[in-house]
Computed example of a mutant assay.
Amino acid sequence: MEKKKLLIIIGAGILVIATIGLYSLNGISNTQPATPATKNTTTITDMMGRNLVIPSPIKGVLATAPPTSIAVYILAPDKLMGVNIAPSAINGSVYMPEKYQELPNVGGWTMMTPNGNFESFIEMKPDIVFDAEWGVGNFSDQLVDRQEKFGSIPVVGVLNAYTINNFDPCIQFMGRVLGEDGQAASLEEFYHRMLSNVTTRVETIPENERVRVYYASGPDGLQTALKGSQHAELIEFAGGENVADFEIAPGAAFTQVSMEQVTTWNPDLIIVDDPGFYKTIYNDTLWLSINAVKNHRVYLVPQSPYKWFDGPPGLNQIIGIPWTAKVFYPDKFSDMDMPALTREFYSKFYHYNLTDNEVKTLLNP
């Protein structure tokens, strides 16, 4: 009888110990907290064919260059954590919602923004970093190097971020990654409307009737982007002839030219990107002999929040497609309603509703 009681006690003890062990294995011991759930992720293939595991959904993004950071702002403004260049102002006003004007300027890695800092990017803890191909060097090697420096933050390779005649792949890909397919489709509709409106008209202009254009960049107007450069792409796209047609070193964005060279070219029309230079050109005796100045065909590029013509190249240039075409050929595009297109573009792309005075300021600086 005593032996039977002893066996019952031992069996009960074993059962208690096993039960405690079972609870511990299932993670609900009073002394050991439950393991937190892991972050949701998804696998994507970037535009260079690299498979990447990224957080899902994406909440915060940085980019290494202006074209991609501007694209993020256009597609999903609340997901952009910082910019590479500060937005431009006109008469002290920036034509974008104030909360986005206050985004920190984190710099980047281009000729325009050679001041990026990997530690600063990492400290902001973005879900991903978009890295754009610029046509300089080996982009695959660049991605490997950037990924190594950014560590566990996925670096997503983007192509076509500055190619005016082929923005579709960039818009579609970045829209999909950011979960903004609807916004991407709206942007593409506007983009294709501008493309078809301009290209179908300018392609019929004979070569000998095309306006000869000089792109005057910088505070003295004596820097320019050459024919074939991504920075002057709109000239040829809108049916003009870039007078700066000579070779420079591969990858160079701009070249310095002399006043004698500009005088020899004697362009019909001048596009200016610097407001200070624009204010002086009609009073500068060095420029007064040039046909474009004599005939009052000098045009300042609309500036805010990002330039329509260049600086930087990117989706901000889409409104520059109709603007440039109408500047070149006002008679051929007399039916183009630039105030209406400007309002539509700023609403869809910059999330900002322009006033009548702001439209006038943009179009008539």
Rank of each mutant, 00 (worst) to 15 (best):
F277R: 08
I318D: 15
T199N: 05
V177A: 02
T224P: 09
L187R: 04
L52S: 11
S258N: 09
P114Y: 11
Y162A: 03
F333Y: 10
T35V: 13
I9M: 05
V243K: 02
G239M: 04
Y346D: 11
M124Y: 02
T342G: 07
I205E: 04
A161V: 04
N357Y: 12
N295R: 14
A244K: 06
G151N: 07
T199R: 08
P169D: 08
Y73N: 01
D141S: 15
N165Y: 14
V72I: 06
S289R: 14
Q261E: 08
E188C: 10
P97H: 06
F328L: 11
K326W: 06
D46A: 03
I270H: 04
I318T: 15
I20P: 05
S304E: 00
G11Y: 00
F130T: 01
F328T: 07
S88T: 10
D145K: 14
L75T: 03
I281G: 00
Q256N: 14
S304T: 10
I205C: 05
P126V: 02
C170N: 12
E123A: 15
M96E: 04
V293R: 01
Y214K: 00
F121Y: 10
Q101D: 03
P312Q: 15
M47R: 15
L226T: 04
G13V: 04
V202K: 01
I205Q: 06
D335M: 06
Y100C: 01
L159I: 09
K39E: 11
Y100A: 01
M1F: 10
E344K: 03
P57F: 05
V202T: 08
S304Y: 04
N208P: 11
D46N: 03
V293D: 00
A292S: 14
N84R: 07
T285D: 15
T68N: 08
E180I: 13
G13A: 02
A37P: 15
S56Y: 12
G320K: 03
E133N: 13
V156P: 00
P36D: 02
N242R: 07
M96S: 06
V202W: 04
T264D: 12
Y329R: 08
Y346P: 09
P87G: 00
Q223Y: 11
Q172N: 15
Q183Y: 12
Y329F: 09
L354P: 00
N266S: 10
V293C: 00
V16C: 14
W308I: 05
V293E: 00
F345G: 04
M81G: 01
G151R: 06
Y306C: 05
P206N: 03
S229N: 10
I235K: 03
Y23S: 11
M194V: 07
Q256Y: 08
V211T: 07
D273Y: 06
N40W: 13
A252R: 15
K294Q: 08
F167N: 11
G251T: 13
G92W: 03
T255W: 06
